[in-house]
Design a binder for these strands. Structure first.
Lengths: 175, 175
DNA sequence: ACTGAGTCGTTGAACTTTCTACTACACTCG
DNA sequence: CGAGTGTAGTAGAAAGTTCAACGACTCAGT
């Protein structure tokens, strides 16, 4: 075991083990390179955007996302589960997040009229103002580290590709 | 406030607030669409890959990444800080993660000869075998949800774009 | 109406990550 | 040498996330 390669194991792991389950379609060197670049680039980008957002205005990327969704909803209000599925968080996680944000005065909660099981969550004026203050800095970060670093074609390619990925994943989970 | 748009606030947030800091270069509708597709697609993809890996072999994506890096290193050994910076985790986080993995028998630690401050972390045989067992399933997931869903050109475009993003971010932080 | 299955949101415990402080060692420069 | 500065790794507390279980309600079938 003296090689020193990739990520997904075709060479290092498979070679090192002597025999790995046959029939695995490993990634080609090219594919591996791209997958790894994607993985590492995304990790570094998201970490950077999150850190800058936090430095600029004390919000996490998750909280920001919650506020954006609420700000766009009619009446700046959404039900907990709509919010949760919209941003792909568990209901439990959202409950905790919203509880903290409610403490901070960013959102309010009240029972839902039409469905007594439900809870409606509303962005407060203070929360909205906080978002207005935060948005320019965040957009600047997204530009600085993603949008302005790529050509229009590259950004479009990335966006289109990830849209395909997301669509497939959603199709798969809806059966 | 009756509009219902995008993400980064140019219309909803700026409009809603009446006056936002002038001079902000908001994202165009196109750019916003691509950025949002990227963000949501990545989130869903990573969540799916992590869940499948965990179901298949009880490892998190982070642990898997640690094991891959160690498996590729000479002697299957790396110093804590090399490992941490390689995968972009804080040293503290890595300490906790490695402590858990050591408990589980996946890795071992010992003091570094050349630098007495340092600690060398080694993938055990059991850990390596665990990786060998996990790799085919994980590669299958990556194929199913990313690689095989895109054309070769799309994957290359995504990989190249994210490589640029990563390079820029690293340049920026090295001053 | 009544029952049973399913959804909504919450809760508290377990677990993971982050944050802050700390010890130990390395390196540089006078 | 030895004082000062910087780096490696750890430790514990705080903050955030996941998990399993629960109470409350809805809805379809009877």
């Amino acid at each position: 075991m003296d090689r020193d390669e990739h990520d997904e194991g075709s060479a290092t792991v498979a070679t090192g083990a002597g025999t790995t389950e046959q029939g695995t379609r490993w990634l080609s060197a090219e594919q591996q390179r791209h997958w790894r670049a994607f993985r590492d680039g995304v990790a570094l980008l998201l970490e950077t955007l999150g850190r800058e957002l936090d430095e600029q205005c004390g919000l996490s990327l998750h909280e920001y996302e919650v506020m954006v969704r609420l700000s766009e909803a009619p009446g700046r209000t959404l039900r907990m589960s709509e919010l949760a599925s919209g941003i792909g968080h568990s209901r439990s996680r959202l409950t905790h997040t919203i509880a903290r944000m409610e403490q901070a005065g960013l959102v309010g909660r009240r029972a839902c009229r039409s469905d007594l099981r439900g809870v409606e969550c509303t962005l407060t004026d203070a929360g909205f103002q906080r978002l207005v203050d935060a948005a320019p800095g965040h957009v600047a970060s997204v530009r600085a580290h993603l949008v302005d670093v790529l050509t229009d074609e590259q950004l479009a390619a990335v966006g289109d590709a990830m849209a395909v990925v997301e669509t497939r994943l959603r199709e798969a989970s809806d059966h």
